[in-house]
Amino acid sequence: MAISVRYYLFPEEFPPLKLSRRLVDGLTNGNDAMPQYANTQQRAVGVVLDNEGGQPLKINQTYGMIWRFDADGKIIRGLDEALAHAMNSIEHAEPRSGTVVSLQPKLSRKKLEDEFRWEPSSADINRIIRDIWPKTKADRLLDAKGVSRKRPPLTYDAKHALDEISKSFWNVGNQISSLKDPSLKGFIFEAKTLAGQEREFRHLYEALAKMGEDQLELSARRRSGKGVWYAVVEVVVQRERFTETVRVIHEQCAGRKAAVIAARRLLVENAHLFDESVSLETSVMTDLEWEVLAFAEDADR
């Protein structure tokens, strides 16, 4: 059974609005805004649904959030503050010999609940239910609007074409990453040559050549340990049915050795976040790899 999440906004003295996934993604990664709510706090609701055959079957969970919109109508700063309070609210064992008990977890938990959470009423939930399973046209809520350009509709044919084409993408990456440097150089040269000869597929061959060049550069960077590297600590929370990376702590370094030292320090500095349901995953990577991880993290937020 698949799980999906829908979002709703409950402005004061106005009917609730439905938030598209595109708009929520834009708000949470800082690429979209709702200037009509600038410098206000608004209530939002997340609805976790169990789905079957692509259709919502039942509501699994609901949770209320308070979004703080800044002067530009963005919420990213408020989300970062709420995340900081959530991480600080985790209880940690105190040394047995200690005589001072930190109040920080309790204070952060209270601030999180008071300023960033709210409990939707039965009437609020019933209004959402009518939107999810409408009986009349009036049951459907209006869509909230952001400022980013709306994407063109993805038709069934377009989605099917993308799905069919991308099925082998993983194998393309695996094949290129398995090549050693001499083979990569030959691969790149031949792909560029074919791009000039087979003009119908030139864009595909050019893309293959670029992937080969990136892999060759990555290989050289790993071998030398020079250039820009990143020390990375990922904070991973074990949810009831899945794991979620809730925070990525990173530091840019000059070279792999410096990144290793920085990673050790970041792990020690953030060891207090470790808990029975929270793990810390530490790694070092080149800026080429970091760009991929950072982009994926922004997209998931």
Rank of each mutant, 00 (worst) to 15 (best):
A44Q: 06
L49T: 06
G54S: 11
G64S: 10
Q36C: 08
N60Y: 07
N29L: 04
A82N: 03
D25M: 07
M34V: 12
G64W: 03
I75A: 02
N51K: 09
G73M: 10
P35C: 04
D50P: 02
T28I: 08
D80K: 14
G30S: 02
L57S: 12
G46R: 11
I59N: 00
I66C: 00
A44R: 00
L57H: 13
V48W: 13
N31D: 12
Q42T: 15
A44S: 11
E52H: 13
I76M: 04
F69C: 02
I59L: 03
D80A: 15
I76E: 08
E81P: 03
Q41T: 13
N31W: 00
Y37S: 03
N31G: 06
G26I: 07
G78P: 03
K74G: 11
N39G: 06
G46M: 13
D25L: 03
N31Y: 00
G53W: 11
D72R: 12
G78A: 08
E52Y: 15
M34W: 05
W67N: 04
N51P: 00
G73E: 06
F69I: 03
G78K: 06
Q42F: 01
E81H: 12
I76Y: 00
D72I: 04
R68T: 12
A82R: 09
K74H: 00
L83Y: 02
D70Q: 05
G73R: 04
K74F: 02
T40C: 07
T40H: 05
I66Y: 06
Y63W: 09
L57M: 10
Q41R: 15
G46Q: 12
D80Y: 10
Q42R: 15
A33Y: 03
Q55H: 11
G54Q: 10
G26A: 04
D72W: 05
G26H: 05
L49N: 06
A71W: 01
L49K: 08
Q61P: 01
D32T: 04
K58Y: 07
M34K: 00
E81R: 10
N31R: 13
P35E: 09
R68V: 10
D72Y: 06
M65F: 12
T28C: 07
V24R: 08
A44Y: 04
A33Q: 05
Y37A: 02
D32S: 02
V24K: 02
Q41H: 13
G30N: 08
G30E: 05
G73N: 03
K58W: 08
V47K: 01
G73Y: 07
Q61V: 02
K58E: 14
A33I: 04
R77Q: 15
D80R: 13
E81N: 10
T62A: 00
G64Y: 05
V45N: 01
D70N: 15
Q42I: 15
T40L: 07
G54T: 11
V47L: 09
L49V: 10
N60D: 11
Y37L: 14
G64K: 07
D80H: 10
G26P: 01
I75Q: 01
I66G: 06
E81K: 12
D70K: 09
D50F: 10
N51E: 15
K58Q: 12
L83W: 06
Q36W: 00
R77L: 13
Y63G: 08
R77N: 14
W67A: 01
N29S: 11
N39A: 13
D80I: 04
I66H: 00
Q42G: 11
Q41Y: 09
N60C: 05
A33C: 02
G73A: 09
V24F: 03
G54H: 11
V48C: 08
